[in-house]
């Protein structure tokens, strides 16, 4: 009887031990699997200054479409590795680089030079020439990328796609 009890407790101990080791193994394997899924969060936020042309190329008061390689390109990304921006030359020394993404749901806004508005094809959002909200569903002003002049070149900081949060 006593022997049986011993057997039982030994068996249940071993089963528990196996269960725990199995669980630990499962966790060890899950970490990289879930980790890969969440990896975009851990990746260093890539930010790089990209030249979009000589300062003289841009006329004061005009807004033009420029593009530059985005900051998280991989060798196989292809055409998708570029980002566009509406670049406005405000004065001799001041530029504004607007994100092309409507702050409503991210569709690409069109610049209408004569009307001096940005218009979104998806749901009809409208922004003024300074990017401020004008009409329609967008919840906030057009986002901007940091921009600087370096050695007479206009440079835009390639940064993440702006995501409108609550």
């Amino acid at each position: 009887m006593k022997n049986d009890l011993n057997m039982d407790s030994r068996r249940s101990f071993i089963i528990k031990l196996l269960g725990i080791s199995g669980g630990i193994l499962a966790i060890i394997i899950s970490i990289p699997v879930i980790g890969v899924f969440l990896e975009p969060l851990a990746r260093k936020k890539p930010e790089m200054w990209r030249s979009v042309g000589n300062v003289d190329k841009f006329k004061t008061g005009e807004t033009v479409l420029v593009d530059f390689p985005n900051s998280s390109s991989l060798p196989w990304t292809g055409t998708v590795s570029k980002t566009a921006s509406w670049l406005r030359r405000v004065s001799d020394t001041q530029f504004i680089a607007f994100s092309v993404h409507c702050t409503h749901l991210g569709c690409p806004v069109h610049w209408l030079p004569d009307a001096e508005i940005f218009l979104c094809p998806c749901h009809g959002g409208v922004f003024n020439k300074d990017g401020s909200y004008a009409a329609g569903p967008p919840p906030k002003d057009l986002s901007q990328y940091p921009v600087r002049i370096e050695k007479n070149e206009v440079q835009i900081l390639a940064s993440p796609i702006p995501i409108t949060t609550l």
Partner: peptide, 29 residues
Amino acid sequence: IVGAEQAGRIPFFGKAVARIFLGGETITG
């Protein structure tokens, strides 16, 4: 991008969910 923007409205974690959805800060490889 529209999908990521919608995910962005999730309280607190919106940006993170959008990044996980796109697999990065922008559309990437």
